[in-house]
């Protein structure tokens, strides 16, 4: 009976950890298979250990080029969406104006729309306008779908901000610009950063909308998609593993730094 009691008490924990395993299993496989030396074109079956791919991460034609395109698009999309989204968020929280409902739904709808619908409709627009599909059209699309996420993240932060802080700044001789730069912006920064980070991740990883509007430009997800048809080089797994490790490392490092800083000051 003690075992049954123990099981009952920890059922949630066990189920949760199983889900976590389900979430992480593909990453384990991706990492493992980055050390594989496959026979044939596809890297789906384990053959033998090899460091070849790690030694030559750009050894596959066009892959690193597509990676660089994806990074550029992600950076610009992040910058664009963050600036535009932050402005909208401030307007929504700080001011009263007409058509607030319309603005809110126009921000909500892109998040409630299947990607394929946005992708297809945007393509009809570009075709109708006779636009040249490529880097610019991808960037336009990415800014579009990242915007709403930035607005949501920044809005949450600005809304939870005590309006008295800005009053205190104005009371202490800071004019409107100074108040914004010295108080509002620094306090809203975590929300803006969260929005920017989300934008980067969404843009970098987007496939469906990009696939419709890319023309002959090949982003990294499109390269992976193509390789699923033609043959998957091991280098894909190297990139995937490296990205995962960098992400975990950066988050852990920032956590350690911030907790140490708090300890020092306490």
């Amino acid at each position: 009976m003690p075992f049954v009691t123990w099981l009952k008490r920890h059922l949630v924990v066990i189920a949760g950890l199983l889900t976590l395993a389900y979430l992480l299993l593909p990453n384990v496989i991706v990492t493992l298979f980055s050390f594989n030396k496959p026979k044939g074109r596809f890297n789906y079956e384990w053959q033998q250990f090899s460091l070849d791919a790690w030694k030559q991460p750009c050894g596959v034609a066009d892959m690193c080029g597509s990676l660089s395109i994806s990074l550029q698009i992600a950076v610009w999309a992040t910058v664009g969406a963050t600036i535009l989204g932050t402005m909208i968020a401030f307007a929504l929280v700080r001011y009263r104006f007409r058509a607030r409902g319309a603005v809110n739904s126009l921000i909500f709808l892109p998040m409630a729309m299947p990607e394929v619908v946005m992708a297809a409709s945007l393509l009809t627009l570009f075709l109708n306008m006779g636009a040249q599909l490529g880097f610019m059209t991808i960037l336009i699309a990415h800014i579009m779908f990242c915007l709403s996420f930035v607005v949501t993240a920044v809005k949450a932060r600005v809304m939870s901000m005590d309006p008295r802080l800005e009053e205190a700044a104005r009371d202490l001789y800071a004019g409107p610009v100074q108040t914004f730069v010295r108080v509002t912006l620094p306090i809203a920064a975590p929300g803006i950063a969260a929005g920017a980070l989300l934008s980067f991740a969404l843009s970098f990883d987007d496939f469906i909308i990009t696939n419709f509007n890319a023309g002959s430009t090949v982003t990294f997800p499109m390269f992976v998609w193509g390789s699923a048809q033609r043959g998957t080089p091991v280098q894909i797994n190297v990139i995937g593993t490296a990205m995962f490790l960098v992400a975990v490392f950066i988050t852990l490092a920032s956590m350690v730094i911030s907790s140490r800083r708090n300890k020092q000051k306490a």
Partner: peptide, 9 residues
């Protein structure tokens, strides 16, 4: 200010 409004950053 009420509840002080100290700048948290």
């Amino acid at each position: 200010f009420q509840s002080y409004a100290l700048f948290p950053h």
